[in-house]
Amino acid sequence: MSAVPKPRQPLRMMIVDDSNVMRRRIERSQQNDLLEVVATAVNGLDAVEKFKQLQPDVLTLDLTMPEMDGIECVEHIIKLKPDVLILVVSALADKATAVEAIEKGANGFLCKPFTDDQLNEALAELIGE
C-alpha cells in the first residue's frame, strides 16, 4: 500500500455521500488516530472538485448520487490519484454497481445498512491495519 505514509500520521479521508445523516454518521465514528476526515462532499462533482484541492488518501463513496454518479466519480478520481483507497458504501441491491466500481479501481465494499463495527472493520481492512 503505497498510499500509507509514516505509520503514526493519520490518513486523510474524504466522505462522499448525498445523505447528510450518513456523512455525519461516518464522520462521527472516525475520531481516531488512523484516519482524519478532511472533507465531505455531497455529490460526484463536488467530490472531484474537493479531491483536486485536498488530495485525500482515503475515500468513502456512495454510489447513487445526483450530478455525477459513483462509477463516474471513481473513474475521475483514479485518474487524479491512482493509489487512492476507495471504500464503496452502497445498498446490497446495488451489488452490480459495486462490482463495476471495483472493476474501475475501488478497493472495498460496505453494504448499507451497517453497524459502526462493520464500518470500522471495512476501513481497517481498506487501509491494511
Binding site: K95, V99, I102, G105, N107, G108, F109, L110, C111
Partner: peptide
C-alpha cells in the same frame, strides 16, 4: 475478471459476489 487482480481482497470477494 476482478478476481484476477491482486488488489481485490478476499473479504471483498465474498461481500460483492453477485
Amino acid at each position: 475478471k476482478v478476481l484476477w487482480s491482486e488488489r481485490t481482497k478476499e473479504n471483498l470477494i465474498r461481500s460483492i459476489n453477485p
